[in-house]
Design a protein around this nucleic acid. Structure first.
Length: 807
RNA sequence: GCCGCGGUGGCGGAAUGGCAGACGCGAUGGACUCAAAAUCCAUUGUCCGUAAGGGCGUGAGAGUUCGACUCUCUCCCGCGGCACCA
């Protein structure tokens, strides 16, 4: 057989699809295994060769698990809502619906060309009303429990995309500011500097789950039942760390400071601060409030420098924009130390009393204190805190000596209480754009905000001719959409005109895969219980905070509501390392280093590309694309085909044992490596096997084993060779070969002889050679003897491996 | 600044306390060919040596050990994350 990849790949892909070979059934008696991968955002650009890397790895794993006797749920879907599609649609003058449909079609074709063993009957699309009606349902459930709420808040506004961004969607970027460097928050999609705006928004109360999201990172199975592992156990340590850092738990105390005013007529009460260092209370020499702190307005009449204070507050509220403008205009003489200094102003006319020292201390406002964290007020301890010290030195505030007391004493003196704070903020989910899930709420002047009744779901996204962003939600301009009867009182009310952040869409998709066609519920409880939690999830490292945290939150919420019976959705996580362009840079259109998989697959075949991408290096690392590398993979596959076909001709002529130990070693190595996601060394082991056995005769059963070993990596080829070996079964459901540990070892070993730790000779010895025999054998060698004079001080013997003479 | 990960031939990488550079790419030489491609064979860390052989070598320096790419400490460089969270 000539290795005609086009012919065999087409042939088997067609059969796999037509016969629904990989359909997963919950009725199967086999143990389940649920594999998930980040469902793609179908962009107009299509895939580049880097995208399928994670999919290929999952497919190898899925096929391996099937051969291990597991019923594998492994499927694909489309995260189809979102800004890039909408922006692209605007650019080309089409409806987002059409663009999304075209993109999905193209993505599906490209994905299918790699021969991935998905159950296509479970395909989902977040932009389809069948799906998003349940996203809306989920939102309403959250609202019913008080976990979705509207609040006026300072939000991140992207002026280019004309929409709000979650904190997690704002990335810090360094900008040159004269000679110095400064950072600005920019939109993660278009890199436009983000502005601060005060807006009324929908939020999801993820902070209610902060403690559980943190605690459950450490979940282990109490019964040590290997079949039921819980979250954390199978996660990379760095991912757990990043989640912990993001939640940012700190333990501290709330302490009240009495207020004192120059004018004794008014009682101003107390001011509450949050501190993680109550033990430094004696060193608190001044207080600092965030500019938005409520006390400031309350004390207006007591503050003698009100005009200045007001001016400072106004400046601080526009800080993001101002900093950006200043950055562009600053003269080059601007020094980093000056530019990055803290700003602030004293509230003259009021003072606080330090409860430990009883001294009067000044009160300042400064924008280095955040209104949204703790109480928005701090006690400044310049003797112990670098930031406070910097501020104190700049404004000539007193720095007390270092005095530490116990927490208990500090709380007793001040009447403070212990308090736990989290860095995590609530999740802003409102978007003022068109291409997303309409928020299923109705605003009525009389009854307030109420959800759309469940029977009226989905609230379909209407087709709009004009959907471009103008700062107000595009849906608001559609009278037909907006006008609705209030579900409570029946009078004319208004639909919510915002759409949901697409992270809401993807926060529950892994649940829908278990029951994708259900029209009555988001999923059937029994089916979810059968398949979930997800056993293995391959995601990009960029999702370790956002998507992962949101999904965990939603899972816990649905557990609380009785829909799910577990608290953590993903047992084992693996991150895929990005393939770079041949220039070592990230693949991008603008750099012109994008490699299109269509061309590569057409030339070398899916199997060769699969093999190469897995062979490049460690899965979680990124490597540059080497156009020659695929050729190497193709060469190996050709040699493999010849090896097997020659083997078939010579078949049954031998019961050869010569190469047996090698085959058993390789069976173990390949299996262990697939399970550990070490695909590069698994492939290397197969190459070594082929090099080693070469033209030696081999028994028919061993030949079949070798075909099974390559099958997960090159399934079209594996299946084709399997059929050439006169089998009409699907190789994916044949048992993975077993290795015999007794047969893995050779009778002889290469014994390394060292003198003072340096290798001086290597001799062949029997496996079980004793130390005495080894010494004799070693000293029989002239080479070794020439390095030894007199009696060795010490002899180290590692059985079956090494003998070292210490002189 | 803080946290995390990493640094091994010309390149991707292998080896997690016991032969450094597996496997692959590239390169050099050879076979086949009218020729080229493809394929096959050999060589391929570096220095000294005709050779046998030996010295050096995993970012730098120290340490632990009979023995260190591997463990410990200090430093340098690269990548990623967080960034006034009191």
């Amino acid at each position: 057989m000539k290795y005609d990849h086009k012919k065999i790949e087409k042939k088997w892909q067609k059969r796999w699809l037509q016969e629904k070979v990989f359909a997963a059934s919950e009725k199967s008696k086999k143990p389940k295994f649920y594999q998930l991968e980040t469902f793609p955002y179908p962009s107009a650009a299509g895939l580049h060769v880097g995208h399928p890397k994670g999919y290929i790895a999952e497919d190898i794993h899925a096929r391996f698990m099937r051969m291990q006797g597991k019923e594998v749920l492994y499927t694909m879907g489309w995260d189809a809502f979102g800004l890039p599609t909408e922006n692209y649609a605007i650019k080309v003058g089409k409806a987002p619906q059409e663009v999304a449909e075209e993109n999905i079609k193209n993505f599906k074709r490209q994905v299918q060309m790699f021969g991935l063993s998905y159950d296509w009957d479970r395909e989902i699309n977040t932009a389809s009303p069948d799906y998003y009606r349940w996203t809306q349902w989920l939102f309403i459930k959250l609202w019913e429990k008080g976990l979705a709420y509207r609040a006026k808040a300072k939000v991140n506004w992207c002026p280019k995309d004309q929409t709000v961004l979650a904190n997690e969607q704002v990335i810090q970027k360094q900008i040159a500011k004269g000679k110095s460097q400064d950072t600005v928050g920019v939109c993660e999609r278009c890199e436009t500097p983000v502005e601060q705006r005060e807006m009324e928004q929908w939020f999801l109360k993820i902070t209610d789950y902060a403690e559980r999201l943190l605690e459950d990172l450490n979940l282990v199975d109490p019964d040590a039942n290997e079949e039921i592992r819980l979250a954390g156990a199978g996660w990379p340590a760095a991912t757990i760390k990043r989640q912990e850092d993001w939640i940012g738990k700190s333990e501290g105390a709330l302490i009240n400071f009495k207020l004192k005013t120059l004018n004794f007529k008014q009682d101003l009460g107390e001011i509450e601060v949050f501190t993680t260092r109550p033990d430094t209370l004696f060193g608190a020499t001044y207080l600092v409030l965030a500019p938005e702190h409520g006390l400031i307005a309350k004390c207006k009449s007591q503050i003698v420098n009100w005009e200045e204070v007001e001016k400072y507050i106004a400046q601080a509220s526009h800080k993001t924009e101002l900093m950006r403008m200043a950055g562009a205009q600053d003269p080059p003489s601007h020094k980093a130390s000056e530019g990055q200094g803290k700003t602030g102003i004293e509230l003259k006319g009021i003072r606080a009393i330090n409860p430990a020292t009883k001294e009067e201390i000044p009160i300042w406002i400064a924008d280095y204190v955040l209104g949204s964290y703790g109480t928005g007020a701090i006690m400044a301890v310049p003797a112990h805190d670098e930031r406070d010290k910097e501020f104190a030195e700049k404004f000539h505030l007193p720095i007390a000596v270092k005095t530490l007391i116990s927490w208990d004493e500090a709380l007793k003196i001040s009447g403070g209480v212990k308090k736990i704070q989290y860095r995590l903020r609530d999740w802003s989910v409102s978007r003022q754009r068109y291409w997303g899930v309409p928020i299923p709420m109705i605003h009525c002047d009389a009854c307030g905000i109420n959800p759309v009744p469940e029977k009226d779901l989905p609230v379909e996204l209407p087709r709009l001719k004009e959907y471009r962003p103008k700062g107000v939600p595009p849906l608001a301009s559609s009278e037909k959409f907006i006008k609705v009867k209030c579900p409570k009182c029946g009078v004319t009310a208004r639909r919510d005109s915002e759409t949901l952040d697409t992270f809401v869409d993807s926060s529950w998709y892994y649940l829908r895969y278990t029951d994708p066609k259900n029209e009555k519920e988001p999923f059937d409880k029994a089916k979810a219980k059968h398949w979930l939690p997800v056993d293995l999830y391959v995601i990009g490292a960029e999702h370790t905070v956002l998507h992962l945290l949101y999904s965990r939150f939603i899972t816990k919420f649905l557990q609380d509501e009785g829909y799910l019976s577990f608290s953590e959705p993903f047992l084992k996580l693996r991150h895929v390392g990005l393939i770079q362009g041949s220039d070592g840079q990230k693949m991008s259109k603008s750099r012109g280093n994008v490699v299109n998989p269509d061309d590569i697959v057409a030339e070398f075949g899916a199997d060769a590309v699969r093999l190469y991408e897995m062979f490049m290096g460690p899965f979680e690392d990124g490597q540059p694309w080497d156009p020659r590398g695929v050729i190497g993979a193709e060469r190996f596959l050709k040699r493999f085909v010849n090896f097997v076909l020659e083997g078939i001709e010579a078949k049954a002529k031998t019961t050869q044992k010569e190469s047996l130990s090698f085959i058993h070693k390789t069976i173990k190595k390949v299996g262990d490596d697939i399970a550990a996601f070490k695909f590069n060394t698994a492939i290397s082991a197969l190459m070594i096997l082929l090099n080693e056995i070469g033209v030696k005769p081999i028994a028919a059963s061993n030949l079949e084993d070798i075909v099974k070993l390559i099958h997960p990596f090159a399934p079209h080829l594996g299946q084709e060779l399997w059929s050439r070996l006169k089998h009409d079964t699907m190789l994916d459901f044949e048992p993975w070969p077993e290795y015999d540990a007794k047969l893995m070892y050779d009778e002889t070993v290469q014994l390394v002889i060292q003198v003072n730790g340096k290798v001086r000779n290597i001799v062949i010895a029997s496996k079980g050679i004793s130390q005495g025999e080894a010494e004799k054998l070693a000293l029989a060698s002239e080479k070794v003897k020439s390095f030894i004079s007199g009696k060795p001080k010490k002899i180290i013997f590692v059985p079956g491996r090494l003998i070292n003479f210490v002189i």
